[in-house]
Design a protein around this nucleic acid. Sequence first.
DNA 1: TTTTAATGATAGTAATACTATCATATTTAA
DNA 2: TTAAATATGATAGTATTACTATCATTAAAA
Lengths: 224, 224
Amino acid sequence: MALEVVLKLENSTYLKDPQGSEIGKKIIKSSIVLISELGYEHFTFKKLAFEIKSTEATIYRYFENKHKILVYIMELYWSYIHLQVLMAIREINDTHKKIEKIIDLLVWEDNQDVSFGGYDQSSLYKICITEGSKAFLSKEVESLNKQKLFEPYKELVEMIAAVFKVHNPDFKYCRSLASSLIELSHFQYYFMHHLPRLADLPEKTPKSLEIYLSHIVFGALNFR
Amino acid sequence: MALEVVLKLENSTYLKDPQGSEIGKKIIKSSIVLISELGYEHFTFKKLAFEIKSTEATIYRYFENKHKILVYIMELYWSYIHLQVLMAIREINDTHKKIEKIIDLLVWEDNQDVSFGGYDQSSLYKICITEGSKAFLSKEVESLNKQKLFEPYKELVEMIAAVFKVHNPDFKYCRSLASSLIELSHFQYYFMHHLPRLADLPEKTPKSLEIYLSHIVFGALNFR
DNA sequence: TTTTAATGATAGTAATACTATCATATTTAA
DNA sequence: TTAAATATGATAGTATTACTATCATTAAAA
């Protein structure tokens, strides 16, 4: 299956819509590869300009600064997961199975078979694991938040929380559990690969991470 | 109660031990205040030098770069929590109560009454909430890890994991649960204050966060 | 009291994160 | 078809950052 998906982001993450031009698309594609290779801190507009065979000036016409590019990429990720989850759980009736599916979609295999905007899937996953939280852990949160930059994250959390709510209407922390699930799926993946003494997932398989996350989610939902 | 605690860190976080001189202590104290005020990204050696009425050159004799200062501060935090937990749970026999105490110590009230090294407690907490994960989410992890820079975090996780293991010897993810607990205590605190739609803790009280974390931990430990 | 170590003062460099300007190419609209 | 608008390229320049290096001065230790 090769499904083409194009997600349109509507907010002030960018100055000029990168989806609207060839060079804009190259900016996003190359940013994803570069940030995952160099790490966010070592990623610069100069390196990106060289990569897309253009100039810094051009990039600045699309994005105010590199942080906005990171936020844009994370918005792509959140919207993408949102869409994937929506499509996948539609046909499932059992909430337990829905939740298992959500966990499955949050933990990516190396071979993601759904192409999406032509972006490098494994680079995108690397970024959301290692750089994702840097999108909102900054002094500028309040201002970025006012500009609705984290809307896709919030919508994803609310959608997952709604599934939790159906599973257990008495559970009071559905949103917290949803955001915890998303963050933990990244952090535990990172720990199992880079700081293994902070986790007990020696096999380093997506499956073992999914089992751990299931314990967390169903443990909390079925508590008491 | 005013308890004086001095923690000695033994590794290559620093070039010259900041605890060994007045100016060294000022570097740490002011870094804690400055990073919490400006955020890690806007914190520079120049601003720090101005604050301690010294020069950049002097700071470079203590720390290679600002990232090492952040790691040093996080090591202080992890060691401090470790010590607090050790002292607190010694006299508790019931593992359930031990775990509740751990959660209590991870979530700080505004008025921490235990002075520790003369550092500003609320600034230290702010840093570990907002900047903490930046200490290890970097391309340099592997190298920093080889230099044993995350040892205090690992020891804290292993200590908490040991308590979980006594509570439920069959639970297979004690380390992951411990690191999850620590990270979630920071992230959910951050969400409840800055991105409230990602959490359901409208009261924004330490207590409500502790209750949520208890659900996660005991939910997972008592699962099935 | 002499050596050693710590700090201060100063200078300099390469890279980063921008801002600004003008020319040129391309697209669109009158 | 031509004029106007828009997008990009080329280039330059600035303030700040993240260092490295050197030498003088001061304080502490032998």
